[in-house]
Design a protein around this nucleic acid. Structure first.
Lengths: 191, 191, 191, 191
DNA sequence: TATGAATGAGCCTTCATTCAT
DNA sequence: GATGAATGAAGGCTCATTCAT
């Protein structure tokens, strides 16, 4: 008896939500959190301002949602088998794959670092971020532990930080920054 | 009540400008560029809102000025003697000194990365930034060149990026991130 | 699946309209006219937002309708026999019964006074209100007239006003306000 | 050295604040709390929207301030001498004077009752209201106590409620409601 | 008839900037 | 030079109402 079936409604909602999130990712990436206005995001998504609040409770909710959603997608490829000790090759492969992901998802990462640097916004996603990022760090630590390093977790964090650094520099200047070289050097010297 | 001399006026101006810039640095660092209001900065500096515009043409001019000024101060210790080839010890010393500077000037660096991530603001400052940062990069490149590395400038940029990365991670989590360890590893493996 | 009869449809409509009006009464009473949202009322009634407009043309129409409807219900007990002169006991009984009605229908009265105070909304409802309230006032006036008072209608209005006053005060502070005492004093001194 | 003296600034502030509060009182009285927009109040006061927030932190702060301010002014005439037992004449005089005040300050009282009926808004001023209204109630109770009534405070509250009632009815229909007669009857029968 | 997605006007609030004094 | 009152544009958000299905 309803004029549209539940499925039809669900479809509409999913499609719209996706479109809004894509537009928001773009705009956040281009302008940063504060400068990105709901109005502009709505315009980019081809949707009215009011409709935004049919799908997200607030601007913060919006960035939080796309942050976590995209992080999940990006980390989705990472399969942690707790019993398997990664070999040097596997580890290097993981790092290279991360680099490719990064290059293919620059807008997201631009937004990610925007968020990281925004004092107020980081608080919103800290918990979810740690939940998602921790398995990767743990895997790295396991690798170092197995190779006899002291303080393997510290080593893992340092490696993560270093990869952050080259990633950001690539992001800021993709034309000129020698990203591949950097990664190969890191693999060679630090794994 | 004798009229003040030109020098006295100049002194007052200088002192006040400094005070405003310090207050602004603090507030930008605490709240980010957009959230930091002129009002709050003026209050922190003990100065009226209107007077701010006597010293700076706009909010953007303000952040641009303190950005460049602080960058100059931070880089001030760096003396480039184009004829001198840095030894490994000198190079390591330079890196360690940079780390100390970073730790002693966290508020500035917090602002620095805030600015780096703000698409609109970075544009304002790009030119000056390169001018100031280039000598350091050049020196690093010279070091690598002298030690027979290929693409020494690329190596220099990579090293800079890596130092960025560990710096930011320290900044985000100063309690736990093993900054010194990271720097020693970098010195050991990458110089 | 036999088609429903006209009567069945009518029944559904009536039942649903009642449910909406009850929900609206609650929400208006809890939040006031402006703060009460159609969305919330629809939710409370278990009905879609759109359907609301199948039964009421607007939010104003809705409050107007429940106002009049409830007023009719509340006054429904009042049987005016124009030939019968009320005795003091009957009159006192009428007042006490009104008090009981009031206590049993606090949500409605809360809405009633909310409406009374809302300049825009009162206008919508003034005419109907007078039509319904007038017989009561007339009866009161007849009582006073029969007991030889001057200006019996003025006396009636004053009595009504006084009962309003104690009602509102009870409504605002039902725990502490001595409603019964007030009514007995009024009966004793003013009838 | 300041371009305007502190006194001049204070003068401006006082004058503006007064003007805004008068405009706000009018508009709140005409339209109720929710319907009264900051925009409209600003327009009525001949002032920009933004300036409102130079004087009041929020719309709630605004209504709270004028509510308390006006209540203080209205109650200002009431002098409580705890040792003096009011005579019947004094008591009657007090009631008549209150009525005059009420008639002379209808806009304020319209706002007052608007506020009383707004669930959310009343909470804001409850404390201050009680502080200001209590002495009057106490005085009334003392009068009844001295005349040997039981539960003098209850009697006082009932009298207050009754005066409320006639006041509101006069407010709603000032042309026709017999306010003076009502007050005289109340004085005669209930004091 | 029934649904809820969609709209758009309007609200409160903030803030960089200007300007009379 | 110095002040802070004043402005106005813009932002996030809410909600009565409409309409395709």
């Amino acid at each position: 008896m309803p004029p549209r079936t539940q499925e039809q409604y669900q479809e509409i909602r999913t499609e719209r939500k996706t479109r809004i999130m894509q537009a928001a990712l773009e705009v956040f990436s281009e302008e940063g959190f504060d400068k990105a206005s709901i109005s502009k995001i709505a315009g980019r998504a081809g949707v009215s301002k009011g409709l935004m609040y049919n799908y997200f409770n607030s601007k913060e909710d919006l960035i939080k949602t796309i942050f976590i959603d995209a992080l999940n997608k990006l980390m989705g490829g990472f399969e942690d088998d707790p019993d398997k000790i990664p070999t040097k090759e596997m580890f290097a492969g993981f790092i290279r794959k991360s680099m490719e992901d990064f290059k293919n998802n620059l807008p997201y990462w631009r937004m990610y670092f925007t968020v990281m640097m925004q004092p107020d916004v980081m608080g919103l996603v800290e918990k979810e971020f740690l939940e998602i990022a921790m398995p990767v760090l743990t895997m790295m630590a396991k690798y170092y532990e197995n190779r006899g390093f002291e303080n393997p977790m510290a080593k893992a964090r340092i490696l993560g930080a270093i990869l952050d650094g080259v990633g950001v520099n690539y992001m800021i200047d993709p034309e000129n920054f020698p990203y591949e070289d950097a990664v190969e050097i890191i693999i060679e010297k630090l794994t």
